[in-house]
């Protein structure tokens, strides 16, 4: 009798789960918190100070943000490697979405690594924490600004379309009608998140 291993199933399901909770939830919170920038530098910097002053902040960040993103991103890269793109032969809508999901995932992961380093880890190393001014200064560089726009668009698409995958992976949207419905809903989530993120970004520029 062969031994049966189920770890790849649980790893894959954990990948799906982490994409929504906590990463998806955090992205919404992140765009929301950064929207405080619309009230100007003082309000924004006071919010940063509030978060920095939370008890166990580093533990919270590591367990609920960094590790889940690292896991989701690394496992996602593995998933990308197991696929074989055939969008040009079979140019169906969902097949394009499949390709885009992988593409935006890789872009978003690269952006997040840069973003976390630039706004958080470098702060931990130098003691100079990110502020309204430091973010604004780095966005003066058009290349960095473009990378932020790309990162926000990729993350937003990846979350919206990832939600579609999530609803199927967890057997919530089953029938054709239900899948069509949530497919439209998820496009709206992507668009809404993109607008939300870009608006937050605009207050720094």
């Amino acid at each position: 009798m062969a031994t049966h291993h189920y770890y790849s199933f649980y790893l894959r399901r954990f990948h799906s789960l982490t994409g929504v909770i906590p990463i998806g939830a955090f992205l919404v919170e992140h765009f929301f918190t950064n929207s405080f920038a619309m009230f100007g530098p003082e309000v924004y910097n006071s919010k940063v100070a509030f978060f920095m002053g939370l008890p166990y902040i580093l533990l919270i960040e590591i367990s609920l943000i960094w590790l889940p993103i690292l896991y989701h991103g690394a496992y996602g890269c593995y998933i990308v490697c197991t696929g074989q793109v055939n969008t040009f032969r079979y140019g169906y809508f969902r097949n394009w979405m499949y390709l885009m999901q992988r593409l935006t995932g890789v872009i978003a992961f690269a952006f997040i690594i840069y973003h976390v380093y630039a706004t958080r880890i470098s702060g931990l190393l130098t003691g100079q924490h990110a502020s309204f001014e430091s973010v604004g200064r780095s966005l003066d560089n058009p290349l960095i600004l473009a990378f932020y726009v790309l990162g926000i668009l990729s993350s937003s698409y990846h979350l919206g379309n990832g939600l579609f995958g999530f609803l199927i992976t967890w057997g919530i949207a089953i029938g054709d009608k239900a899948q069509r419905g949530v497919s439209i809903l998820c496009v709206l989530v992507s668009a809404g998140m993109a607008a939300f993120g870009l608006a937050a970004l605009s207050y720094f520029v």
């Binding site: 049966h4 189920y6 197991t82 055939n86 969902r94």
Partner: peptide, 14 residues
């Protein structure tokens, strides 16, 4: 649930 099972579906729906 084993390796190669349903979790490897990628939802491309081709």
């Amino acid at each position: 649930m084993e390796k190669g099972g349903i979790a490897e579906c990628g939802n491309a729906q081709n």
